[in-house]
Design a protein around this nucleic acid. Structure first.
Lengths: 119, 119
DNA sequence: CTTCGTTATTTCCGTTCGAACATAACGAAG
DNA sequence: CTTCGTTATGTTCGAACGGAAATAACGAAG
């Protein structure tokens, strides 16, 4: 299994976005629900909701639009801005991972051999 | 001020290296002392030392060699492996930052304007 | 107007993290 | 053999973080 590179982009005002928020956005887009996305990520609804709150406050306009009540209780979906953020973050991740690959290999080469599993 | 990209490389066994440990390595190389490096980073000596302990355990051989006692109380310096890890991490950081730059610009463009400072 | 599943919000609690503090060990120099 | 500054290690405390649970609000469908 190759090492995994995690990125966190810190803005000048202290706000930041990392894998947690990005994955959450992706799962909200996929499931149409904050609670479903939270369940998928193994986190509490409250935590997911608070992350959404932060996300909605740190960009120009909310990234997630949510609705209460209705036939299925409501739901949530990404706004145009939300989609753009998710796309840009994903692109950033992909570009960084590709560019960093050689250095990662160098680092991995300096790691100790596995203690031998049951083979 | 541009956003800052922070990288954390997670290995398959759970060990990881990020900006904290990397900066610490660089400062130990520069100052020749764990305590001086800790002071520079604004962290306690104990925390710095425990990070060194982790670093020394997660690669093939220690990254930091330290000595107690002596004329100036002792000191610490990077081993060959330590230097290699620092170089590789720095290269990874630089490569990732360059490659991610366009996406970062996209993200920054979606941020709200500053609330206007006292100009 | 009752039902239902989701969003929204509060309170409480255990865990983790790191700072702060306190000591001990060490060894070259004087 | 005393001094001195650093490494090495344990202990204690407060803050921050996040989970769990409870409760309210909501609105379309039946």
């Amino acid at each position: 299994m190759p090492p995994r590179l995690r990125l966190r982009l810190h803005f000048d005002d202290g706000a930041f976005i990392g894998p947690g928020k990005a994955d959450l956005l992706a799962l909200i887009a996929e499931t149409g629900s904050i609670s479903a996305a939270a369940a998928r990520m193994g986190m509490s609804y409250k935590r997911a909701w608070s992350l959404v709150e932060v996300l909605n406050a740190m960009f120009s306009g909310p990234l997630v639009a949510s609705a209460r009540g209705g036939a299925h209780g409501g739901g949530a979906h990404l706004t145009e801005t939300g989609h753009r953020v998710l796309v840009a973050y994903t692109a950033m991740q992909a570009a960084a991972e590709t560019a960093a690959a050689p250095a990662i290999i160098d680092l991995q080469a300096l790691r100790p051999p596995a203690p031998l599993s049951s083979t």
